[in-house]
């Protein structure tokens, strides 16, 4: 396997960056703890991603939207939804592995059954009988979550080229996910390329499906970098079940100081500002 090389390098890189970030000090910003010592580099990657999104991904997404049956609300499944379904079906074996690594048998079993049902009755994952008929929606997880379960700290915020917002922990997780995915060990090289293509297509389809929301964050925000970072961190921490600081604006009002009051546990209390 010549891919050992390809494994080793990114892994080494991922863990190097993972440990490198521990030195910096996170700050409380807009009610959220932000650890972003590489902000300058991240911002230039962000500008690159933004222009790729505007010039390549959004136009393709719009094509998919108009051609893929985005507007028809019938039982007929559009081409776009078929691609999304097939791609996300292919991601299930990797999720099963991660749930097992996290010591969570329940989502592992659910995803395993989901994969079995949708790959067969669902015709290679085009349809979703598992979700619609068997009450088995996808249990989302990845190696970034596995690392979190194992107690690895989040690290710094990073924006990855083409992939978008991430943290050092999640970036390392993405690399590892490629190698622990059982499909990559079962399929031959051509099949792997097809699977990869389908999964990228699936992501593009989702981008088209949620196009308006993505546009509003990326193209309409006053500072789309800060907004993307904020939304990613809040959403990701919620997914991982990490406690957030609630904002109590009423408490902030009482304190009447420029500092981060009301940010003690991450609750925003506007009354305390």
């Amino acid at each position: 396997m010549r891919s050992l090389y390809q494994i080793g390098l990114p892994l080494a890189f991922a863990f190097a960056t993972l440990t490198a970030g521990c030195a910096s000090k996170p700050v409380m910003q807009d009610g959220v703890l932000v650890n972003d010592p590489y902000e300058a580099q991240n911002r230039s990657v962000h500008n690159f991603n933004k222009s790729v999104d505007r010039n390549v991904i959004a136009p393709v997404g719009n094509l998919l939207r108009s051609g893929g049956g985005g507007e028809q609300r019938s039982d007929r499944i559009g081409a776009r939804d078929a691609v999304i379904n097939v791609g996300s079906n292919l991601s299930l074996p990797g999720k099963v592995v991660n749930s097992v690594l996290q010591g969570r048998p329940e989502p592992a079993i659910k995803n395993l059954f989901r994969f079995a049902v949708n790959s067969t009755i669902g015709i290679a994952g085009i349809f979703d009988p598992a979700g619609e008929g068997f009450g088995l929606p996808e249990q989302d997880t990845d190696f970034g979550e596995t690392l979190a379960v194992w107690g690895i700290p989040e690290g710094t915020y990073v924006e990855l080229p083409l992939i978008g917002p991430s943290t050092q922990r999640d970036a390392a997780g993405r690399v590892v996910d490629i190698f622990i995915d059982p499909l990559n060990h079962v399929l031959n090289r051509d099949e792997r390329m097809i699977a990869l293509g389908l999964r990228i297509g699936s992501k593009a389809g989702e981008r088209a499906r949620f196009g308006d929301t993505v546009d509003s964050i990326l193209q309409d925000s006053a500072d789309s970098y800060a907004q993307t970072r904020l939304i990613y961190l809040m959403h990701r921490r919620h997914e991982l079940g990490e406690t957030r600081a609630e904002i109590d604006p009423y408490a902030d009002a009482d304190a009447d100081a420029g500092s981060d009051v009301g940010a003690d546990e991450g609750v925003i209390d506007p009354y305390e500002e």
Partner: peptide
């Protein structure tokens, strides 16, 4: 109500970032 939190994404935090940038 003074805040809406959708899948962990906090409206007050998000608007604070937006208005501060503006």
């Amino acid at each position: 109500f003074f805040n809406i939190i959708i899948e962990g994404v906090n409206m007050l935090a998000s608007e604070r970032a937006e208005v501060t940038a503006l």
